[in-house]
Design a protein around this nucleic acid. Structure first.
Length: 697
DNA sequence: GAGCACTGC
């Protein structure tokens, strides 16, 4: 290939022609492997073009010949849409024609779609309807090294499907270097099939070996057997110098700020990316930089600190992509969002504090924790790589080399630290009854599975033999909300409050804040919130907010602005509610909306004096395991009795009197355990709706 | 009187 060294005089185009991508010279080898083996593991950095090019190569090679589709899964929605748009452009079609995408609430595909990008969660959902995923000839699982919950479940399901479709399904796993062998071992280890090549190979193995794109050892008896191979595609990255501290830092936020200033005053041009763990640290650091920047020499280059975390609005996030003004260096203080989800061009320096906030679920207490944890080596490598995207970079690790050596190789996958009730329910619905023997790429601890089985049993989703109940369990699996809320929804028509529970289910699962305020508006936001508050607690308050939004705020953003309500969150709630309603109607459950159309800001006016109680009783049928009793000092104790719970400051129960309550969510952060979305109930309802669960306690 | 990393159906 020609050696282009004109970068000093020319600006590179935004879109590299596909033939110039490093992947292009691996095209033949890649197609050969896919034709020959059921599983191909593709190793390549971002920028290698694997996500955009591989599906096109496959389509051109005839993998869609008999009307079959090539699926490419992504862990995130944005990735699925943006990549689809990009590939459609390259192919020269409109999105939704030959190239399309499918994500929750948005299916942009048609009968002519041959390449389809979708989230891995959605592909799993398709398996409920089409258990062998027979529409697809090739399924490529992208970013598998991230090991998200649904990626891991999908991999196990795909291995099972492959046993039934050894000759007409091809699987491609895209992974970072470190984990490639684990994926291959997973598929090849005990997969007892004799695959045959599907398409006549257009090139011979000898050709490829002599061209140098495949190592000769690929021909022999080696890892992967006749099941699969690993192929490595070079990415376009630049070397990064890694520097360590000589002695551990006492306060890494402090040290990060100091390091940023050292870089700013001593190092040549280039923006800085600093990895911190959360909003609080980021705000502190941004503040500190602003203060110290005032002391810089008036003629020196200025420094512009910018925050980046998921809680920011998209407008606020956009600043990090804008080019800094002249004579200004950008320094971005980011959470882990900058490690995989968001890529910022032009970063030359990375400051890595070595920590990340990780969620974990304690199967003994049923409580989730969110704590700052040391990162893994794989994570540290990924972070450092963020400095080498445009030219040679530097990475300052705010820990010692010995500390680095002691880090875990990879982050513990989510499946080993999550509440598995939704996973177990989903697997059961896919016909996988023996969860313990299910072939996970990494097995979850038995305690997590047991806890999940116990909860699903107490909710009535599983019977005495741990079989999925019908219709209840099956319907719970199909609803796109967690099991406790799914049970609540399916109880609602018998309480005569289905319309209301639909709204509450949607509002509690929007993710992100319902309330939104700018700096200095906190007091006014609290006042606005109080207008919607009701005595019974947070759930019915959420119902009031939604009702008001539907009637008054949907068309005018002023309503949201005046009441400090997050327009985006409420719009999302409307979509979720619509989707849940369609599911229920498919089950033959009719939703009577006539009683709930009169929106009302007045407390207790949810549709008559009894409605509130019906709603609270109904919530108890799903959330009995999340019950607590208020203590004289205003804190709560859970049913097991051991844990002290605090009402989250965003809850109405934060400073109100109550006796027994149920709550949507419990999470431990720092040293305190908070409950969110809290509603008052009567103690005897617990025994009434969950006799089995409460008979011994 | 205090605060949630990130994602998904």
């Amino acid at each position: 290939m020609a050696d282009f060294d004109l970068s000093a005089n020319f600006i590179p185009s935004l879109h590299k022609p596909a033939t110039l991508l490093p992947i292009a010279r691996h095209r033949q080898s890649l197609l050969y492997l896919v034709e020959t083996y059921p599983v191909t593991i593709v190793v390549g950095h971002t920028g290698s073009g694997k996500t955009t090019q591989i599906p096109q190569y496959l389509e051109q090679a005839g993998w869609c010949a008999d009307g079959k589709i090539i699926a490419v899964t992504q862990p995130r929605r944005v990735a699925a849409t943006t990549v689809a748009i990009r590939v459609a452009e390259e192919v020269g079609c409109k999105v939704g024609e030959e190239v399309g995408y499918s994500i929750r609430f948005e299916d942009v595909t048609s009968a002519s779609t041959r390449i389809k990008f979708l989230t891995d969660g959605l592909l799993l959902r398709e398996a409920l309807v089409d258990p062998l995923l027979s529409r697809y000839s090739v399924i490529m699982v992208d970013e598998a090294h991230e090991r998200s919950l649904s990626t891991d479940v999908l991999l196990g399901v795909l291995k099972k499907i492959l046993k039934r479709r050894p000759n007409d399904l091809r699987i491609i796993i895209s992974s970072a270097t470190l984990q490639a062998e684990d994926f291959l071992k997973f598929f090849a280890g005990d997969l007892d099939i004799q695959p045959k090549p599907v398409v006549q190979a257009a090139v011979s193995l000898d050709d490829l070996v002599s061209q140098g794109s495949l190592a000769p050892s690929n021909a022999g008896d080696q890892l992967g057997g006749n099941i699969g191979r690993i192929i490595s595609l070079e990415g376009r990255t630049y070397p990064v110098d890694v520097l360590y501290l000589e002695a551990p830092a006492e306060d890494y936020v402090d040290k990060a700020v100091q390091t940023v200033f050292d870089i700013h005053t001593k190092e040549p041009e280039g923006d800085i990316l600093v990895f911190l763990t959360g909003r609080e640290e980021i705000d502190t650091a941004v503040q500190a930089i602003s203060e110290r920047a005032a002391n810089l020499h008036p003629r020196a280059q200025t420094i512009m600190p910018l925050p980046l975390y998921a809680g920011l609005s998209s407008e606020q996030q956009m600043y990090v992509f804008e080019e800094a003004p002249e004579n200004t260096r950008k320094v971005i203080f980011a959470t882990n969002i900058a490690e995989a989800s968001i890529t910022i061009e032009g970063i030359v320096y990375v400051v890595d504090t070595g920590f990340v906030k990780l969620r974990a679920f304690n199967p003994l207490t049923g409580i989730e924790t969110l704590t700052a944890t040391p990162i893994s080596k794989a994570s540290a490598t990924q972070r450092a790589g963020r400095a080498g995207r445009t030219k040679t970079g530097k990475c300052y690790r705010l820990y010692t080399e010995a500390t680095f050596q002691a880090l875990e190789e990879a982050t513990i996958p989510e499946i080993q630290r999550s509440n598995l009730a939704p996973v177990v329910l989903q697997l059961k619905a896919l016909g996988i009854d023996n969860i313990v023997r299910f072939d996970f790429i990494t097995s979850p601890p038995a305690e997590l599975i047991i806890r999940a089985l116990e909860l699903l049993y107490s909710l009535g989703a599983l019977d005495d033999y741990a079989k999925l109940t019908r219709p209840l369990g099956m319907r719970m699996a199909e609803l796109a909300v967690e099991p406790m809320m799914a049970k609540t929804l399916l109880s609602a028509s018998s309480f005569g409050c289905l319309s209301e529970i639909l709204t509450i289910a949607a509002m509690t699962s929007v993710g992100g804040n319902i309330w939104f305020h700018h700096d200095g508006e906190k007091k006014r936001m609290e006042t606005a919130r109080r207008k919607f508050a009701v005595e019974e607690g947070d759930h019915i308050t959420l119902l009031n907010v939604y009702q008001a939004f539907i009637t008054k705020g949907r068309k005018e953003t002023k309503f949201c602005h005046d009441n400090y309500i997050n327009f985006k969150a409420l719009t999302r709630a409307v979509s979720i509610r619509g989707q849940l309603k369609r599911y229920l109607e498919r089950f033959g459950i009719t939703v009577d909306e006539t009683l709930s159309t009169n929106a009302n800001l007045q407390p207790l006016a949810v549709g008559g004096p009894d409605k509130g109680e019906k709603i609270r009783r109904c919530l108890t049928t799903g959330f009995f395991a999340h019950a607590a009793k208020m203590q004289p000092d205003g804190t709560f104790k859970n049913v097991a009795g051991g844990t002290i719970l605090h009402a989250h400051p965003s809850s109405l129960m934060f400073n109100r009197k109550a006796d027994w309550v149920i709550f949507h969510e419990v999470m431990e952060t720092g040293n305190k355990t908070f409950i969110r979305d809290v509603t008052k109930i009567e103690k005897n309802w617990l025994v009434e709706y969950a006799p089995e669960f409460y008979k011994i306690r």
